[in-house]
């Protein structure tokens, strides 16, 4: 990895941010016709559209930076499991409404800090994507924070359920703040975001909402890593890829 070029690092970096959007967007889209009310279904599908939209822009930029004539779809449909560098938190199954809200909330707190910082990137394209995405994730954060509070401070059943979701998903949050080689390399030029430095703010934002939601913040313990740094995913990920890439694998080289 010592001889990772700046160009390769940039391609990896843009694709990796895109992977987070595509995979969590994929999970959100699975809520179609399954939400507690139609209004909530509309809300989740809007978020899915935002997140998949972010992935498209980032993949297109990665393809341009790579300069091999590839497109956004090459990144989504023709890479293998190990090539995806999304955080594991984005890929675990939806579970119930509580699990989905907790995941969206944890991720949105992160995304808001991340895209605010990316908006200041020295790379103009990434900065523009950061600024646009920031507006979207700010809304996701508002939506999911309110739901955290409603569920946490709703009935005893909802409180217990959502606390359990938090406890189950917490193990995946540490990975968000680890730095890959590409991130470290690009950080020197002020292109990438120093995600390790976002952790303190993230903790604080989480704690604020949890307090209102009467939820307990789990202690930081073991952090499950793998997706972001090495493309080593959970067992669930293979099914996402099998589903998503089915058409492109079955009918290679077609226009759709």
């Amino acid at each position: 990895m010592a001889d990772l070029s700046k160009k390769d690092a940039l391609v990896q970096y843009a694709a990796q941010i895109g992977d987070n959007g595509l995979i969590i967007g994929h999970r959100m889209s699975e809520w179609c016709f399954r939400a507690p009310t139609i209004e909530m279904e509309m809300a989740l599908m809007n978020s899915a559209l935002d997140l998949i939209g972010q992935a498209r822009e980032l993949y297109s930029y990665a393809a341009t930076a790579q300069g091999e004539g590839k497109t956004e779809d090459d990144f989504a449909y023709l890479r293998d499991e190990q090539d995806f560098r999304n955080a594991l938190l984005t890929e675990v199954p939806n579970g119930d409404w509580g699990d989905t809200i907790v995941r969206l909330f944890l991720m949105s707190v992160y995304n808001k800090l991340f895209f605010s910082a990316l908006a200041d990137s020295k790379d103009a394209e990434l900065a523009a994507i950061g600024a646009k995405s920031l507006k979207e994730v700010t809304y996701h954060l508002r939506f999911s924070s309110e739901w955290m509070i409603r569920l946490g401070d709703g009935t005893s059943e909802s409180h217990n359920r959502v606390q359990k979701s938090v406890d189950n998903l917490w193990v995946y949050t540490g990975e968000l703040f680890t730095m890959t080689d590409a991130e470290n390399l690009l950080l020197k030029d002020g292109i990438s975001v120093d995600v390790a430095a976002l952790k303190a703010d993230w903790n604080q934002n989480i704690a604020q909402v949890f307090e209102q939601a009467t939820l307990t913040v789990p202690a930081d313990g073991w952090a499950q890593l793998g997706g972001k740094a090495d493309g080593v995913h959970t067992e669930h990920f293979g099914y996402i890829i099998a589903d998503m890439q089915y058409m492109q694998r079955r009918y290679p080289g077609c226009e759709w």
């Binding site: 209004e39 509309m42 809300a43 309110e146 409603r150």
Partner: peptide, 20 residues
């Protein structure tokens, strides 16, 4: 109209349903 349990939710649902 929308169904919502509180004003914030009503606002967001109105946004998601009527301003797409």
């Amino acid at each position: 109209s929308v169904h919502a349990s509180d004003a914030e939710m009503a606002m967001e649902s109105a946004r998601d349903v009527y301003t797409r």
